[in-house]
């Protein structure tokens, strides 16, 4: 599948074919939907699903296409439908930060974004950063990881944080990294890593 189009404007009723094909959730989507749409659906509504729909994401500067239900999250799209596995699925409920990616220049939890809703917004995953990018390198320098499962999310949260605080104090770091959890206990290293990354990234900019 390599469609690069947004979900097409379609008559909602035609989507019911997909639903049957999918074979799940059919019990729940009963006559109610039809009736309601018959009353209320405006002709111009841009709709997709139920059932798989073509989705095009802009990941790390490249258009990437997949076909997935509108209910598929950005995280599941990245990890399962595509092969960007840097973002991890840990809580899957927007509480741990392991799935952090950048969307439209801001750090977000990919588990709490629908893939279909992420269309048209530039998405940056950790795979978009070079292996030796200054943030990851600072994490290595300060041994700011143990098992490493939270680390890609931490690195992307750092990227988001530094975008807003290019010249942070230690206190800023403590306040600005509160959306990510680590279980191994690497926060002391992370504090220093974020400060070093800030320094090195500014250096890179000046150079």
């Amino acid at each position: 599948m390599s469609s690069t189009k947004d979900p097409k404007t379609k008559n909602a009723v035609s989507r019911r074919g997909f639903l049957g094909g999918m074979g799940i959730g059919t019990g729940a989507v009963g006559a109610g939907l039809l009736e309601r749409e018959a009353i209320a659906s405006p002709a111009a509504a841009t709709v997709a699903g139920p059932g798989a729909a073509p989705i095009t994401l802009n990941i790390n500067g490249k258009p990437v296409s997949l076909t997935a239900e509108p209910s598929v999250t950005l995280l599941d799209a990245l990890r399962n439908h595509l092969d960007y596995t840097g973002a991890k699925k840990v809580c899957d409920r927007g509480t741990c930060g392991a799935c952090t990616v950048m969307m439209a220049g801001k750090s977000v939890y990919a588990c709490s974004v629908l893939a279909i809703d992420a269309q048209g917004k530039p998405i940056e995953t950790i795979e978009g950063l070079p292996v030796d990018n200054p943030i990851s390198t600072a994490f290595v320098n300060h041994d700011a990881q143990q098992c490493g499962y939270c680390t890609p999310g931490m690195v992307m949260a750092t990227k988001g944080f530094l975008a807003e605080h290019p010249n942070p104090t230690l206190e800023d770091v403590k306040n600005g990294m509160g959306g990510n959890l680590c279980r191994c206990g690497t926060y002391m290293g992370i504090r220093q890593a974020v400060l070093e990354a800030a320094k090195n990234m500014k250096g890179a900019k000046n150079g």
Binding site: R79, N80, D83, T85, G86, A87, K88, K89, T125, I126, E127, L129, P130, V131, D132, N133, I135, S136, T137, F139, V140, N141, D143, A144, Q145, G148, Y149, T151, P152, V155
Partner: peptide
């Protein structure tokens, strides 16, 4: 010495078994 698998993990390139496809 810095941990040898540090860069692979910190860059998200390390494949955990839960990442396998």
């Amino acid at each position: 010495f810095k941990r040898l698998d540090g860069q692979a993990k910190a860059s998200g390139r390390a494949k955990y078994t839960s990442d396998l496809k």
